[in-house]
Design a protein around this nucleic acid. Structure first.
Lengths: 346, 346
DNA sequence: GCCTGGCACTCCCGTGGGCCGAGTGCCAAG
DNA sequence: CTTGGCACTCGGCCCACGGGAGTGCCAGGC
């Protein structure tokens, strides 16, 4: 039973520290939470917790602060799911239901998430790996210039302007168009690429743009393949809520600066999010658990999202280790679910 | 001639203050710049400059700091254009030449600009006001569901998924498609909207989406009109370089926080940029010259860009009043010119 | 008339000492 | 195992003080 109380003490320390941003002492603890024991008892418990590495003192004769390990235990075992308020649920639906296309969904989501959590939100655009080709359109701008438009099942539209090595009249263009449609529409993009390459073997599989093939049709196909390949490895993300960093108050240099720098480096963000995308659960990476020493005092809360069960992409938030984990986890999960549902419908 | 020296003193004060971020005193001035007079003389000049409102003392017996009015004079009359280095020019061209489409151009530009100036860069996407409709494409997803793709001369592609009130078979779709092409292609978007509305008078001019017309074809047209209207007032912008705010060092609350907040409010940014777009010159708004009291210690350097001479949109940077104006102005101008050229070619 | 060296004055800022209080660890008793 | 008591520690705050950078003014020189 002592064990139980010790955990309750840890939970109380985390909650108070998150709320006040100040080391919490034994007296304040028994006052604010109805622990039913004296401060001295709590002190004994705190000594044990410190021994075990869950809390620490910034300096002698100061209150205690949770360590990364303490937050970890709190998140894993002491967190009761905090359901979102009705107002929050309503905000999510009204905010996201107005979206007109995929980009809009992503942009609204990231904004919403940053407002709900008051943290920096990150949403990865759905990857194209599992999407299929919905339509291919060719538009002649001039006889020797074609606009290629590629429409994918996720709603993404890619366009390229292609300069041809020779002219292509309307009939030839129409023929090429219907051939492309026959080959690619409905296919997963990986298969589409294979099919296109097979039909037009003079498209070099490497060096796609350097040594352009002489044939106009091949040039067009090469452009399509290139556009798909570009997008496949694509890793676009949306970020919102940098203003929330202003609330960090202290520890500007140690926490805000590296984070601001990381936010510009989308590659880094993707890595942060990416490590998390296991299954449908919300993942929490706390402080130094990650590979970036500079982000030692920040945590990442993320989860996958996407239509049906398998996840197309990842979304989440980055914030100070000292954050409201239950509320944040709930918000991240709720937004991910809602976005997934929207993508399912579209 | 005294007048000339006084201006030289002002210039020296601005340059030193920008470089050191510390109030500059008379002695340091004569040492660092070869003014050829004694500190006492400079003090007299500074007294006059202070009288006239160009410089100020943070407190008695401290050095002088330029006022907004001082920066203004510096920018208007004391700035000699600082040509970019060869390396910088080369960086611009290699950085921007790889762009594949319009979005890419904008994103590369904003990134480049933030790196060149080490400030927060803002690039507005080209407005559609002057663009023409290049192509309209309809794709049947199901018999009662059509994907509308709208391609504009600026290279922007808009798509909408439209749920029809009834089915539309392939022939009807093809007919509608060719009708749309005939009506809209090549027209400026304003004219296209008018033409579309005229041909299908049962498209309500207000309440475009609430009371959907019963006719499938009209529904499609309504969607196109709506998409155009949405985009016309569109005000998308790209922002980059928030990490540069970390260099503000001091004055975090007073300067960085409101700016971070403003960066999230794209409407505010547009207003900031928008006020500037007169002619082809680079505009500088210094400190309190703008309408936002919170941004009193920030300046905006912006200019229009676009193909040919008239400007489609605006780009620029936001930074502390204390910035390297000559270098920043040169960078903004150079990027704007380069982007304009690229848009011209496309 | 303007520049210059000298001089007294002002005020910011960094430093060091002392006090206070929150919080702890330990101990002996219940 | 819990509790009240007690001595101890140490960071933060206040304040006084001195150094130094910079100014304004004045009288003399060109």
């Amino acid at each position: 039973m002592q064990e139980d109380r010790r955990l309750a003490v840890l939970r109380a320390i985390v909650e108070d520290y998150v709320a006040t941003e100040e080391p919490v002492g034994s007296k304040a603890l028994v006052e604010r939470h109805g622990l039913g024991v004296s401060p001295a008892t709590v002190r004994n418990d705190m000594a044990v917790l410190e021994e075990e590495g869950y809390i620490a003192q910034p300096h002698t004769s100061a209150g205690r602060v949770p360590t990364d390990k303490g937050y970890r235990l709190f998140v894993d075992r002491l967190t009761t799911v905090k359901p979102l308020s009705v107002a929050e649920r309503k905000a999510i639906s009204t905010f996201l239901d107005g979206a007109v296309d995929l980009d809009d969904v992503v942009q609204r989501s990231v904004r919403l998430l940053s407002q709900l959590t008051r943290q920096v939100a990150i949403v990865q655009y759905p990857t194209l790996a599992r999407s299929t080709v919905r339509h291919v359109e060719l538009v002649a701008l001039t006889p020797a210039r074609v606009l290629v438009v590629l429409i994918l099942s996720t709603g993404r539209v890619e366009q390229r302007v292609v300069d041809l090595p020779g002219d292509l009249d309307d009939d030839a263009l129409a023929a090429l168009r219907s051939q492309l449609l026959r080959l690619a529409v409905g296919e997963p993009i990986a298969d589409a690429v294979t099919a296109l390459r097979a039909v037009l073997p003079d498209v070099p599989s490497d060096a796609p743009s350097d040594q352009a093939p002489a044939d106009p049709a091949s040039t067009v196909v090469a452009a399509i393949v290139e556009a798909i390949e570009d997008q496949r490895s694509d890793a676009r993300i949306a970020v919102s809520g940098a203003a929330n960093l202003a609330r960090y108050g202290d520890s500007f240099d140690s926490a805000v600066r590296p984070l601001l720098e990381a936010l510009e480096e989308h590659v880094v963000l993707l890595k942060l999010l990416g490590e998390a995308s296991t299954g449908g659960a919300v993942t929490v990476r706390i402080g130094t658990e990650g590979p970036y020493a500079q982000l030692a005092s920040t945590s990442v809360v993320s989860t996958g999202y996407g239509p049906a069960t398998d996840s197309l992409a990842t979304l989440g938030i980055v914030g100070p280790t000292r954050m409201d984990y239950p509320g944040t986890i709930a918000a991240v999960r709720a937004v991910a679910r809602y976005v997934s549902r929207i993508l399912d419908e579209a």
